[in-house]
Design a protein around this nucleic acid. Structure first.
Length: 455
RNA sequence: GUGGUUGUAGCUCAGUUGGUUAGAGCGCUGGUUUGUGGUACCAGAGGUCGCCGGUUCGAACCCGGUCUUCCACCCCA
């Protein structure tokens, strides 16, 4: 071995036991998606750079993996841009394709491209990997899976309600004991910016107040000042930090605060509808929380904003989403409202692992391994294996007549559930000895009996 | 992108002020008289100390670069 091989930064291999757990997560999510009426689609892992660039803000563009042009296309390199020090333009001329950064923007492209083949409102789900050239840390990878569900072609708030219920159902099915679905509305944030007379600085304001629980009131004020927010505006923002009490009380306080902002009040109304409906449909109120400080960076959101955090685990948000009124507009199809959410499968995995929440039954262990005693016994066992497999029981024969101990050790190392021993005596009597590797118990049964036990 | 951190056998880690053949535990392989794993006992294999370069008579140890790990920011799933 010359040099130790390794995967690139921020990527991982998955061993069989890990894949089994990941499959469990994907299956749980997929089942609920389909129950809620969403259909699966898939899109390519890479898109044209022009499709992706400029959709995620300056920060996002930096994190997009670009695919180097190959062959003669290298001649398209904009050497002048390099000379001028315009690295962004130079790199764009070198890369006409890029790995997808999320599933939402490619979906918008998909909707525009296939608009005549889709029935609106169109509901799709998509479970595929995405790539970000981010610096890895806990719960942050360069390659990870997103599980997206979106509806486009309707501005009905019923979908917001559906998504809240969907969050609740999936996370409950995954046995996550303590999570909070935070909900806010971009219109409320617009209203806040309007009230303090800094409507054009909405992004700076929301990003700053988003950090409230992290850096505190003083930290937020400091950040706002550094973004050139005027003192008079600051004064109007201050009352926000005093908003407290139950959800209803906080909503009332916000109503008063936003009384001069039409858009802000509309946001409150939308939010109230979603909260009321969720409540009426019996959702646990502890799971849903109105949070004025929830902003989320993606600037294409226009209505509801969601974010889910698993409590008692130090990991970022595990789900996110929101309403975007005009995502397809940039691809030439204006006026189509969409709303959607995303589950971060890799972070959910980390949460389940850390809290030891994977069901013990999640595995892909072999049901039965037949010990190989020699040619004659082997062909007898192969027939038994065929019957077992037909009954849906995974089974195989050890490939060589190696020492018993070696075969048993192999079975143990692989985590095989049962070992079947069929030697001369057993063949004569028409039975097999089957040892349960977990309990160590051994029984004598025929093939049908074994099927009966394992089914 | 900014600042810090990590890298020694398959794994978890020791390795004293730079000085001969770099260690431990676990794991692994083989054996303990031949149809039974996870326990016990015996034996054994396995590392040019992440990589490249520099300082030195001499580097796992000092210096520089690079890759990787983890963390904080930024941002986010």
């Amino acid at each position: 071995m010359a040099q130790k091989p390794s995967t690139p930064k921020g990527t991982r291999d998955f061993l069989p036991a890990e894949v089994a757990k990941r499959t469990y997560i994907f299956d749980t999510i997929r089942r609920s998606f389909e129950t809620y009426g969403f259909s699966p689609i898939e899109t390519p892992s890479f898109e044209l750079s022009t499709t992706l660039l400029g959709k995620y803000g300056e920060e996002g563009d930096r994190l997009i993996f670009k695919i180097l042009n190959s062959g003669d296309k290298m001649f398209k390199a904009d050497v002048d841009a390099l000379k001028d020090g315009n690295l962004a333009r130079f790199s764009n001329s070198l890369a006409e394709k890029a790995l997808r950064y999320d599933l939402t923007v490619p979906f918008a492209r998909f909707v525009v491209q296939h608009q005549n083949e889709l029935a609106f409102p169109f509901k799709r789900y998509q479970i595929q990997p995405v790539w970000r050239a981010d610096r890895p840390q806990k719960g942050r990878y360069q390659e990870f899976y997103q599980c997206d569900v979106d509806v486009v072609g309707s501005d009905s708030l019923l979908y917001e309600v559906d998504f809240v219920l969907l969050f609740d159902e999936v996370l409950s099915n995954l046995n996550i004991p303590d999570f909070t679905i935070k909900i806010n509305n971009r219109k409320i944030l617009s209203g806040i910016a309007e009230v303090c007379g800094e409507a054009d600085k909405i992004i700076a304001i929301t990003v700053a107040i988003d950090k409230l629980d992290k850096i505190g009131v003083q930290g937020v004020i400091k950040e706002l000042k550094s973004k050139d927010i005027s003192d008079s505006a600051l004064e109007k923002i201050m009352p926000l930090f005093g908003v407290a009490g139950s959800t209803k009380q906080r909503l009332d306080q916000m109503k008063t605060y936003l009384k001069s902002s039409e858009i802000g009040l509309k946001g409150i109304k939308e939010l109230e509808f979603v909260l009321d409906q969720a409540n009426e449909l019996g959702m646990n109120p502890d799971h849903l929380e109105f949070d004025v400080t929830l902003a989320r960076g993606l600037n294409y959101y226009t209505g509801a904003i969601f974010e889910v955090k698993a409590n008692n685990v130090n990991i970022g948000s595990i789900c996110g989403g929101g309403r975007y009124d005009d995502l397809t507009g940039v691809f030439g199809m204006p006026g189509v409202s969409g709303v959607g959410i995303s589950f971060g499968a890799d972070r959910i995995y980390d949460v389940l692992e850390e809290l030891d929440l994977f069901p013990k039954t999640v595995d892909n262990r072999l049901d039965v391994l037949f010990v190989n005693f020699g040619e004659m016994e082997q062909s007898y066992c192969l027939k038994a294996v065929k019957v077992l497999r037909a009954a849906g029981i995974s089974s195989e024969v050890y490939p060589t007549a190696a020492k018993m101990q070696k075969q048993m050790k192999y079975a143990h190392a692989r985590g095989v559930k049962n070992v079947a021993l069929v030697g001369e005596d057993e063949i004569e009597e028409g039975f097999m000895k089957v040892k349960n590797m977990d309990s160590g118990e051994q029984v004598s049964v025929n093939v049908q009996g074994l099927i009966h036990i394992l089914k």
